[in-house]
Structure formats: structure tokens, C-alpha cells
Amino acid sequence: MADPILSVRDLVTYFRPEEGVVRAVDGASFDLYPGGTLGIVGESGCGKSVTARSILRIVDRPGEVESGEILLRRDDGGIVDLAKIDPRRREMRAIRGGDIGYVFQEPMSSLSAFYTIGNQLMEAVRLHRAVTTKEARQRAVELLQLVGIPRPEQRVDAYSFELSGGLRQRVMIALALAAEPRILIADEPTTALDVTTQAQILDLIRRIQDERRLAVILITHDMGVIAEMADTVAVMYLGKVVESGPVDAIFHAPRHPYTQALLRSIPSVLAEPRSRLATIAGSIPHPYARPEGCPFHPRCARSIAGVCDRTVPVVTKLDERHEVRCVLYGRPAEAAE
């Protein structure tokens, strides 16, 4: 396999408001390969969005990337550690948008209502490329065409509020692709959309990815979207990647008790009508009250008293690509299920 285009190692991002510490991301590691799709999945508070924002170095105060490495392989083969760059420096601004494009959940609040979408696209193009106004406008029309917006020559002069939610999200994707990045980070790109519009947007992301060998990090709470799109999956719970591996292994041979329980609890159109769902006991703890030891132990059916509530389990490699952070697999004697 080719070298990863992005490697995150032991990423730690904490928020330190006056009331205490929120360990939003607490040691996350994963790799992204050229042309591949990494799905990061988890429930609220698991740190999936903060992970994305940490990579882009746009974590809001009082949050800060505290340690770890975010290694980006650039076109020339050189490697930069984004965790070590000052987020306000020009170098980081060139990477943001230039090497890594990003799309967020709320297309309405991410687009300006004061400028036409053409203006915003042209600005994004000219931020990274030295082109004339005319060329930038031509490029804006091409980008709208690429993301499947009908009548791009006219729509380039429209304002975001004149567009539907689905079209706005297409504009967001066009903006993210303006400088031809090699990585696209999409954080819940379809959560605010209806299901038929979601299908259109997922289709679009797949098509563009194939055409440009784009590497995608797709962040979502929706296991269905992950199953549909990802080739590698990282499951997060309370700031930690508890399990990662190829999508088929995660869905058909999950090892971490959280992944197993989560998969059992998702409603499915394939289920028997009116069938009860398996549940996970309790609820996600408050950010200030994270459990000691394994973050999942208070809700885990297989928790071992005196072990899981005391020590943070280490990552165990089950095979070349499948890793799990759980004591059930940590000690070889108990590894056999």
C-alpha cells in the first residue's frame, strides 16, 4: 500500500475553560491514504469534530492541540507536522484550503449572505492561485458545474439564501475544492439534509473522489453513511479511538464492546417491523465527568472490576489494519473469545 497522505499520531486536544478540563480528543491515531475514505464515527461528545478541527488547526479557544503529531505528506514528498505549526501563520493558511479542503454541517452559516456564491468561489480560487478576475470567474463556473449545479453561468451570480439546502451544500463542496486539495474533510456533510438530497451529495463526493483521487475524511454519527462510503473506519468514544479497521471488519467482525453494542442498537430498514432494539445502558457522561480507566467501562457489559475502571487500555493490533483499545484483547491469555 502507498504511504499515507495524512498520519495522525496520539493527538491530544483539550479545552481548558475555567470550570475544568475537557479532554475532547485524548490520544487519537489513524492514517489516511491517497484516494481512500476514512470514516470517523461516534456519538456526541466523542471528539470526532474536534479531531477534524485539530487537523485544520481551527480549534476554538479555550481549546488547544496539546500534543501528538499530524503528519501531512505534501506534493513534493516532504512531510510537515501540522501540530507544530502556528495556526495563524501563512504556512497553515496555505495548507487549509490548499492541501486540505473542508465541508461542515451547516451550509447556511458557513456561506456569506453578503456576497454572491461566485464572489466567494473566486476569492477561494485567488487565495491559492495567481489568476486574473476573469480566469477566476471562469474557474468558479467550472467548479459549480463539477458539483452538479444546473445552469452554473447564471447561478454564479446567485446569493446563498436563494439556494436550497442541497444546492448550498454543493456550493460548500465547490468551495472546498477551489484550490484542488488532495484531502477533503467533510464533517457531517449530509446531516442537515433530507434523505434523497443526502443520496445526491454522497454520490457527488464519491464521483469527485474517483475523478481526482481525493482522500476523504468523512465524519458522521450515521453508521449507514459510514457503511456506504468508508473503506477504513475509526470508532471514537469520549475522545479515544476505541477501534479502527477496514469497513467490513468493523461491521462484520467488530471487537470492541462499544462498537458491538453500537451496531446492535442502530435501527435498520432491514429489521422486522416493530422489533425492539438492543440498547446500551446509561448515557454518555458529562464532559467534566469522564470516567477513569476505559471511558466506556460504566456502560460496558463486559467490564472487569478493578481493571477497566483503573487503567486505560492500550491499543492492540488484531491484524495488519484492525486495532482495538480494550483489555479483552490486550493480554494474550484472554484474547480468545
Binding site: 436550497s164 442541497g166 444546492l167 433530507d194 434523505v195 434523497t196 438530497t197 443526502q198 443520496a199 445526491q200 454522497l202 454520490d203 450515521d222 453508521m223 449507514g224 453513511v225 459510514i226 457503511a227 456506504e228 468508508a230 469497513v247 467490513d248 461491521f251 462484520h252 451496531l263 442502530i266 435498520s268 430498514v269 432491514l270
Partner: peptide, 25 residues
């Protein structure tokens, strides 16, 4: 039919060919 086809199924072995509706509601 189109609505059902658009629902992502939580199983990577069932990546079906979807009916992607053109246009908007």
C-alpha cells in the same frame, strides 16, 4: 421506492445501486 433506496444501509456488503432522484422537492 426512491425514498427507501436513498436510505443508507448499515452494512458495507449491501452497497446497492441507489436510485438517485434528480432535482429538488
Amino acid at each position: 421506492e426512491a425514498l427507501l433506496s436513498a436510505v443508507p444501509t448499515p452494512d458495507p456488503r449491501r452497497r446497492a445501486k441507489r436510485i438517485v432522484l434528480e432535482g429538488e422537492v
